Amino acid sequence: MNTHRSVPGFLAAAVVISLFGSPVLQAQDERKRDRALRILAVGQEPPWREVIQGGRRVQIAPPLGALPPGRLQLSNAQGIELGEAIGVKLNQISSVMSVNPGNHPLHAVGNGGLEPRPWYNLKFPNMAAGLAILWRDPTKGKWTDGCKGMVLRDDLTGFPAGRIRIVNVSRYSLGLKFGTEKGLLKPGQVLLRAGKAGAFSKVPLDLSVKDKSGRWVRVISQEINQRPEHRTYVVLYTNDGEAPTRPVGAVVLRETARGPAVKKAR
């Protein structure tokens, strides 16, 4: 047995590993990931529970799976982490994560670092900026083993100032009344509406769902207010947490209309 024959292969492997992890290739990879991704995980909040410890009120952590992972990070196909992890809070839009078009494994990041198994596989379309709306998989009932999701254009061309975007990720078809408009908002449907000169002032938004007898029951009723330089997300989700009081919940998020962008690699 000639042990020397394996040396060139070993050296080649070492060179590949060295190049793969080199700062030059990492910088090139950063420049390729020039699209902006933000994440909005929506769903029913777990109930607040607390105990008295040492004369002080202390919150009890919700059960595992009641909330999405607190931090998420991309990896490549080999499971090597890419970029920086971002924080995720239920019903809040995250900061920007740099991506490129294609399929991307998203990993939960715990105290021990990147979880080896992808939590969710994200397909990012060919767009400058996107918002990934994530919700709990109804077949699993927990956030632990991934989720369902959709990606919407988040740049100013796809979602300009002076607009409201209504997104139904619940499992229900909803009766919609928005101002003078009436219609049916099906699961997965997205509506984009413009205000008068970009503004909305006390525009009523009412949503109803059919009960078991076929009668429409109002589940959400509120007024939409918005200045022309703002844009508003209204995302409707299934209340599938602990002891829901109504079948559908909503998160309304208004922001100054700016196109999310990634930081340029040096």
Rank of each mutant, 00 (worst) to 15 (best):
N2D: 15
H4P: 02
S6N: 08
L11A: 14
V15M: 12
I17T: 15
I17H: 11
I17D: 11
S22C: 14
V24K: 06
A27N: 10
A27D: 06
Q28S: 09
D29C: 06
R31A: 14
K32P: 00
R33L: 05
R35W: 08
A41Y: 03
A41R: 02
G43E: 06
E45S: 14
P47V: 10
E50H: 11
V51I: 14
V51P: 01
I52P: 01
G55N: 06
R56N: 07
I60S: 02
P63C: 00
G65P: 04
G65Q: 05
L67Y: 03
P69F: 00
P69E: 00
L72Q: 00
S75Y: 03
Q78K: 13
Q78T: 13
G79E: 13
G79L: 12
G79C: 14
G79S: 14
G83A: 04
L90A: 03
Q92K: 10
Q92F: 06
I93D: 02
V99H: 02
L106T: 00
V109S: 01
N111F: 02
N111G: 09
G113V: 05
L114N: 01
L122D: 02
K123R: 14
F124R: 04
P125F: 08
N126K: 08
M127I: 15
G130R: 04
D137C: 09
T139M: 12
K142H: 15
K142D: 13
K142E: 11
W143I: 01
T144P: 01
T144I: 07
C147I: 04
D154G: 08
D155T: 10
F159E: 04
F159L: 15
P160M: 13
A161N: 08
I164N: 03
V167Q: 00
V169I: 12
V169P: 00
Y172M: 03
S173D: 10
G175I: 05
G175M: 05
K177G: 10
T180G: 13
G195Y: 03
K196Y: 08
G198F: 05
G198W: 02
F200G: 07
V203T: 15
D206W: 05
S208N: 09
K210H: 02
K210S: 02
D211Y: 03
R215K: 14
V217D: 10
V219L: 07
I220H: 11
Q222I: 08
N225I: 13
N225S: 15
R227L: 15
P228K: 13
E229Y: 13
T232D: 06
T232H: 08
T232G: 07
V235M: 05
V235D: 01
L236T: 05
T238K: 00
A243W: 06
V252A: 09
G259P: 06
G259N: 12
P260I: 09
